[in-house]
């Protein structure tokens, strides 16, 4: 399935998806950023809030990317990109990084997705294609251990197929864990009554969004146009 969206729709860039999600992270939260769009959020955290970013390779207090001259090969994030450490930050052994994840100490994890189902099931570790070896990394630990999971993803695949589906076809990362989905087209909450659209990209209609989303969408009464905050 491939559905062309009207030209008047303003899709969010990958950085803007990260920016929109970052703006909703509560002050004082301890948050893990997964590989892909989520790690971009470290560069666009909202001003005036103190949020402690956790990286699975043993860092609390991850700061934004350094200038090229300040890169340190011992200081990288889960995506193997150079980062910095904020005052108050700490380094620790991998097993403690996962004690934080698996022991329920993280308030929130932002993850990428291949597929998200209407019931919050998440698939993001394997395509079952031998040319692309599977990579689970910390995804199953985060999905099982963080207090809340938000997914940040493009709304459709490169082929234009929906990534928000009735039921995952790909092998699961975890069952029923996703609470909120940020895409280049919408902000959608996963609720017991179904998928509730809170925000849509400028120029988008519910019909057009539904056409690229498998499960039936519910438009929130107080829905609004998605505004990307300045950072």
């Amino acid at each position: 399935m491939s559905t062309a969206l009207a030209e008047s729709v303003t899709k969010l860039s990958r950085l803007d998806i990260a920016r929109r999600a970052a703006a909703m992270i509560p002050d004082g939260s301890y948050v893990n950023l997964g590989i892909g769009i989520p790690t971009l959020a470290a560069n666009v955290m909202p001003a005036g809030r103190e949020i402690v970013l956790h990286s699975e390779n043993g860092i609390l207090g991850v700061g934004p990317a350094p200038a090229e001259k300040d890169r340190d090969r011992d200081l990288i994030n889960a995506s193997k990109e150079y980062v910095t450490l904020l005052p108050g930050g700490a380094y620790f052994v991998h097993s403690d990084a996962f004690v934080m994840i698996r022991g329920g100490h993280l308030d929130l994890a932002l993850l990428g997705a291949f597929e998200v189902a209407a019931n919050g099931d998440l698939a993001n570790w394997t395509t079952a294609d031998r040319r692309f070896p599977p990579g689970v990394g910390g995804a199953m630990d985060l999905a099982a251990g963080a207090k809340a999971i938000w997914v940040l993803t493009d709304h459709v695949t490169k082929k234009g197929e929906p990534k928000i589906v009735n039921a995952c076809r790909l092998p699961l990362t975890a069952k029923g864990v996703v609470k909120r989905i940020f895409t280049d087209l919408a902000l959608i909450d996963v609720e017991p009554r179904g998928l509730v659209v809170r925000e849509m990209a400028p120029g988008l209609t519910l019909e057009a969004l539904q056409a690229v989303t498998e499960p039936a969408l519910i438009l929130a009464q107080d829905w609004r146009e998605m505004v990307v905050p300045a950072t």
Partner: peptide
């Protein structure tokens, strides 16, 4: 390839 979730990998070693 034996694929192991990262936290399970470190905890199994621990």
């Amino acid at each position: 390839l034996e694929l192991v979730p990262q936290g399970t990998l470190s905890e199994r070693m621990r």
